[in-house]
Design a protein around this nucleic acid. Structure first.
Lengths: 155, 155
DNA sequence: ACCGTTCATGATATGTAGATCGTCTATTAT
DNA sequence: ATAATAGACGATCTACATATCATGAACGGT
């Protein structure tokens, strides 16, 4: 199956929620509800996003998460690198670990070029654009995205 | 990590060994040695390749495996489909299972187009070409590929 | 200083890919 | 028919991604 892990998608969704709320702090719990990502797992993801500086975390009363820098300066590629490691997209298409520039596999040249295209494309998609995109969708009920800034009082 | 499973690469390597030996039958043991794939695991892979018709298996004395059809009629895409399932490359880049044409993710359109390119590229690479490619490599010692048709007598 | 709030972190399931082992069954030389 | 050969298949084991839980540590209002 060709693609990234669920974690990458989760991270993008979570950050998109934060991109909506450019000011204040969002609780992990609210990000979970807004993004649809299971909360305990989301905490782990937010944790590694904090470690890589994409988000800031504040503990205690009135704490929560917010973006570490403006949403137009965070790309989908950044998010993926933060959760998958910087070397995502440096691997052999066929999963061969013997494969390198020196000792290449039959798909090596093609895949190397394709990876660059993919990486560049994802570097061109900022969180702003993702948020914009999500907002534009006709059936943006729930699952993907917010719930405009509005507070819920009931459990 | 963006890429297919190890199994796909193993399958391609194994079939490339068979492509060398267009006539007779090759033992699982010899394919394992030639391709560098761990033998017990290779058996599973060969088994599923047999199920999909890419190779033929013959049991018993003087048995072994051989290609089910000429190597120039087997593409890398065929091999991948056989081991990963026909729907490899139909998944969301970000691993979101909520993602579809109807309810797309931000990378959906781009990724859908890219997938087609990838698939088409792999459909253009036949086992003949793979074998040719491997043969052309300067340091084709062992690991990847054969061992030109020559029998090994010692353990 | 206290205490509730909120993130951080380690321990613990669960599912699936990767890898191995042992045994069953089919084939063929004799 | 028999025995040796070689693939088929089920049971098992490890590693990792995914997911959950419980506890710890930091923060801020009072």
């Amino acid at each position: 199956m060709l693609g990234l892990s669920h974690t990458s998608g989760y991270a993008v969704l979570a950050l998109t929620c934060l991109a909506y709320e450019a000011e204040g702090w969002l609780l992990a719990k609210d990000i979970a509800e807004c993004s649809g990502v299971p909360q305990p797992y989301l905490s782990k993801i937010l944790n590694s996003l904090t470690a890589s500086g994409l988000v800031e975390a504040k503990r205690g009363y009135r704490g929560g998460y917010r973006l570490g820098r403006p949403p137009d300066e965070i790309t989908v590629a950044d998010v993926i690198a933060a959760v998958e490691g910087a070397d995502w997209g440096e691997h052999c298409l066929l999963g061969l670990n013997t494969c390198s520039d020196d000792r290449s596999c039959p798909t090596h040249a093609f895949w190397k070029a394709t990876r660059v295209t993919i990486r560049e494309s994802l570097e061109r998609i900022s969180l702003c654009q993702v948020a914009e995109f999500e907002r534009s969708l006709p059936n943006n009920k729930h699952g993907f995205l917010p719930h405009p800034p509005e507070e819920h009082h009931d459990a």
